[in-house]
Design a protein around this nucleic acid. Structure first.
Length: 317
DNA sequence: CTCCAGGCAATTG
DNA sequence: CAATTGCATGGA
């Protein structure tokens, strides 16, 4: 047990029965970590507040926090929104899908316990800009190095010693970062580092027009255009930002894994060809035809995680 | 040494 | 326009 008077303890009712570990390590966030030496806890920092979570008995999530509010909301309200408890996962796949693809459905059904999270837009922008042409291990390493160098350092004391956490850097911290220095955190990739600082400056100056972009009724295509105007952000990354950072569950990012299952599971011929912009858009149309539009991305992520684990037998998150 | 890892941008035809 | 090629880096 973590023994620290500064940590408040609350419970979030988990009547949706989602699997915390699957959700946190399904690859949509590169920042959640399993806590050492308290391995059953998962840690993350929100708005410079430390949260430790673990699955508890009675369909509850146990939350230890060093604050009572996050971004002005109570912990419960914040996590309710963060874990999209308002979304009924049972409706993500249509009954038509289940009858049309019984084999796939049999594999995917357990992955309904994976929830898409509503994460911080800036954090998602940076972390997914780190995620091109590179393995999951290296992505996580980049992200942790960025937080360690540019983020707020937070410490709590436990009976097993001091534990150190780092918050995600503010836009201004990365906007003013020196490219050569930031590149040390991005596998020495200076182009990527420069793209990140440029995007952070744009974000800070309001050019990203996040108020508009984040609003639910903004057309997805407008969001993509706004994001893709930045060097280093293409259609795939833009769709990831929309899905994971802007709560746009209709956004359907296509990467190498999605491309693979579109062919293997759904027999879409075009998925064997390279992902040019035209083909990317075509494949999205095909995916929406099968998955519907409203929750195409939500469903896609369940399929993504299922594909990686059940078919590719991947063990890296 | 080769090939792959959750793509993107510049350059051709 | 649309398709192809270059790129940039670390790890298996």
């Amino acid at each position: 047990m973590i023994n620290n008077k500064t940590l408040f303890k609350t419970f979030i009712k988990n009547d949706k029965r989602f699997n915390l570990k699957h959700t946190l390590f399904s690859g949509q966030s590169f920042r959640w970590t399993q806590l050492e030496p308290f391995k059953e806890y998962y840690s993350h920092i929100f708005d410079n507040s430390i949260l430790l979570l673990r699955d508890s008995t009675g369909n509850c999530i146990e939350v230890l926090s060093d604050t009572e509010k996050i971004n002005g909301l109570s912990i419960s309200d914040y996590l309710y929104r963060y874990f999209t408890v308002d979304i009924d996962e049972k409706t993500v796949f249509s009954s038509k899908f289940k009858t049309d693809f019984p084999e796939v459905w049999r594999l995917v059904e357990p992955y309904q316990s994976v929830r898409i999270m509503r994460q911080d837009p800036f954090e998602i922008m940076v972390t997914f800009m780190c995620a091109q042409g590179i393995g999951m291990q290296l992505i996580r390493r980049q992200v942790s190095m960025i937080t360690e160098r540019y983020g707020q350092r937070c410490v709590i004391n436990t009976e097993k010693g001091e534990m150190v956490f780092y918050g995600f850097p503010s836009p201004s911290a990365l906007a003013t970062a020196k490219v050569d220095e930031l590149a040390l955190c991005t596998n020495n990739n200076r182009i990527r580092a420069a793209n990140i600082t440029a995007m952070a400056r744009s974000f800070e100056s309001g050019k990203l027009a996040l108020a508009c972009v984040a609003s639910g009724d903004c057309p997805l295509e407008t969001i993509r255009e706004t994001l893709c105007a930045h060097s280093g952000i293409g259609l795939k990354i833009a769709d990831c930002i929309a899905l994971f950072g802007l709560g746009r569950f209709d956004a359907f990012p296509i990467d190498t894994h999605v491309k693979q299952y579109l062919w293997e599971w759904f027999g879409i011929e075009a998925a064997r060809k390279s992902l040019t912009e035209k083909n990317y858009r075509f494949l999205q149309k095909e995916a929406r035809r099968i998955l519907g539009n409203e929750y195409a991305g939500y469903a896609g992520h369940m399929l993504f995680h299922c594909w990686r684990k059940e078919v590719k037998k991947m063990t890296t998150f």
